[in-house]
Amino acid sequence: MKKFILLFTITLLFSCQNSAQTNKEQEAVMNAEPVEVSLKNGKARAYFASGCFWCVEAIYESVKGVEESISGYSGGYTKNPTYEASNTGRTGHAEAVEIIYNPNVVSFETLVDVYFASQDVTQVNGQGNDRGPQYRSIIFYQNEEQRNIILKKREALAKTLNVKIAADVYPFQKFWVAEDYHQDYEKLHPNNPYIRNVSIPRLKRFKAKFPKELLKVSH
């Protein structure tokens, strides 16, 4: 079952915003120039962090035009992060997904819509009972066009809901692929208690409110 980590002793180190440790290494990541990932075989890549990657992976794979969703880590300052290390909250990384998609079928703009439609947009440093900086919400941009799309959608959503949106916006730097046993976890372990009680309900909530014409019949 997914680990639930309650961070009592380190909460004083964080502001009300999503945050990893406030140190020079993390600030450098947040202020870096974005790295743009080239198309490969006509497919583009986008990167999102939104709580447990087991949940997010399945959500994006339910969207037409998404070829694959890979679980991993991004947004931090340590090299070769592992699941155990990221769970300490001391790597700066968040659980993230790499979305491989066909830009002729689905746009980056729609992928951002999927992101906001599939989470509690107000929760800081986590989703549901998955709490801590490793579960914080981050949208990664690779160029100024993507950054503008994200900021405009975040601002519009904040005005519509009259709330503060918790998601941070980071320049993409690098995506570290997670351990093999994390990949396609929802598909391979449908009877896992976390999948049954958290991942699948979250997926169903998303699919119930997202336009049906943008969703696959099955994922």
Rank of each mutant, 00 (worst) to 15 (best):
Y135G: 03
G51W: 12
V217T: 15
N87I: 09
A20G: 15
L188S: 07
R205K: 15
N162L: 09
Y170R: 06
R205C: 02
E109A: 15
E98N: 04
E145H: 14
S137W: 06
N162G: 13
K153L: 09
T22M: 03
Q119N: 07
V66W: 06
V66K: 12
I70E: 04
E144C: 08
F206Q: 02
W54R: 13
P133M: 01
A46M: 12
E67R: 12
V37Y: 06
S86D: 11
L39R: 11
N102T: 08
Q21N: 14
L39I: 03
Y185P: 06
N23Y: 09
A94I: 06
G89S: 06
Q142A: 02
W176S: 14
N191A: 09
Q21R: 14
Y135E: 06
I59S: 02
L151Q: 14
P133R: 01
I149R: 12
Y47N: 02
R205F: 05
T91H: 04
V198Y: 02
L151H: 03
A44N: 13
W54M: 08
S69V: 13
G126S: 06
H93D: 13
L111N: 09
C52D: 14
A158F: 10
P34H: 03
F116K: 08
A49V: 00
R90S: 07
G75A: 08
S86C: 15
I200E: 07
G65V: 12
Y47D: 01
N191R: 10
E57Q: 15
V121S: 12
V121A: 10
Q123H: 08
L157G: 08
K212F: 01
A96H: 02
Y47Q: 13
T88P: 13
S38H: 14
G128E: 00
I138Y: 04
A158G: 15
R131S: 09
W54H: 09
N162T: 10
N192E: 13
G92Q: 00
T9P: 01
S19A: 15
E68R: 15
F108L: 07
V177N: 00
A178T: 06
R147T: 00
L111K: 06
I70S: 02
E144L: 12
